[in-house]
């Protein structure tokens, strides 16, 4: 199933390495969030009990932090093609992307049949990726300072406290939206297959990533009839 050619009625979207990277990142993010939350809100004090006390929780936070930086390195070493494709796609913004955001609230709430044609990623996905990239670097660098505070001037440590919390809030906000749209929203839910099995139905590609679909048809990777038959 995960060969270069997709199954019938399906189209290849992500490589195995890209999928591993996504889920390692997701797991580390979730565990970092969990182990960090008690320092953000007292209602998460129960986390200390789960991880064996506040001191152990802080040690776990550092272990998860190391895992957190592995996915980008993994892609850089073993799947540069996917990494650069992703970066190029999510960093390319067009004026028409703004239109998407105006039409999105309706799509979000009840579905909007008039959504404009999208490329490999829609602007929402691009925004999610961009905000994750920014918050990733902010979290990693401020986190490093907070891990080794003696190595930095005290004002750098103080500002890192602020940066760490702002970046975590930013990242968590987009993650909530990301999880909802990929796991709970009826229109975009089928996209989940892309990041589990690596391929999505041709039909979904046609309806949600029209421009990408057209490219695939043009390249002959998808035969127009495919979608009708699926």
């Amino acid at each position: 199933m995960n060969q270069n050619t997709a199954s019938k009625g399906k189209v290849k979207r992500f490589t195995k390495m890209f999928i591993y990277a996504h889920w390692i990142y997701a797991a580390a993010f979730f565990l970092l969030l969990l182990t960090g939350l008690p320092l953000f809100a007292n209602s998460f004090h129960w986390v200390y009990a789960v991880f064996g006390g506040p001191d152990m929780t802080q040690i776990f936070h550092r272990i998860f932090a190391v895992i957190f930086v592995i996915p980008p390195i993994m892609l850089l070493l073993f799947d540069r093609k996917s990494l650069f494709h992703w970066l190029k796609e999510v960093l390319t913004w067009k004026p028409k992307d703004i239109k998407f955001f105006f039409m999105f609230p309706k799509e979000f709430l009840v579905g909007n049949p008039d959504m404009p044609k999208q490329g490999f990623y829609n602007p929402g996905e691009k925004l999610n990726s961009c905000m994750q990239i920014v918050s990733f670097f902010a979290l990693v660098f401020s986190g490093l300072v907070l891990w080794f505070p003696e190595a930095f001037p005290v004002s750098v440590v103080q500002w890192s406290n602020l940066i760490h919390v702002v970046a975590f809030i930013m990242a968590t906000t987009v993650v909530i939206g990301h999880i909802f749209l990929s796991a709970f929203h009826p229109n975009s839910k089928p996209s989940m297959e892309g990041i589990t099995k690596g391929e999505i139905s041709v039909d979904y590609a046609k309806h949600h990533h029209g421009e990408w679909y057209d490219e695939l048809v043009e390249k002959g990777e998808v035969v127009e009839e495919d979608s009708k038959g699926a």
């Binding site: 709430l109 009840v110 929203h185």
Partner: peptide
């Protein structure tokens, strides 16, 4: 944000059935 996605979940459950059929029939 949590309230937003919960709202989206409920409104889609209530109102999204018809349009979704049109959009991608057999997808789910």
């Amino acid at each position: 944000t949590m309230m937003g996605v919960l709202t989206g979940y409920v409104t889609n459950k209530l109102f999204n059935k018809g349009e979704h059929h049109e959009e991608g029939g057999e997808v789910d």
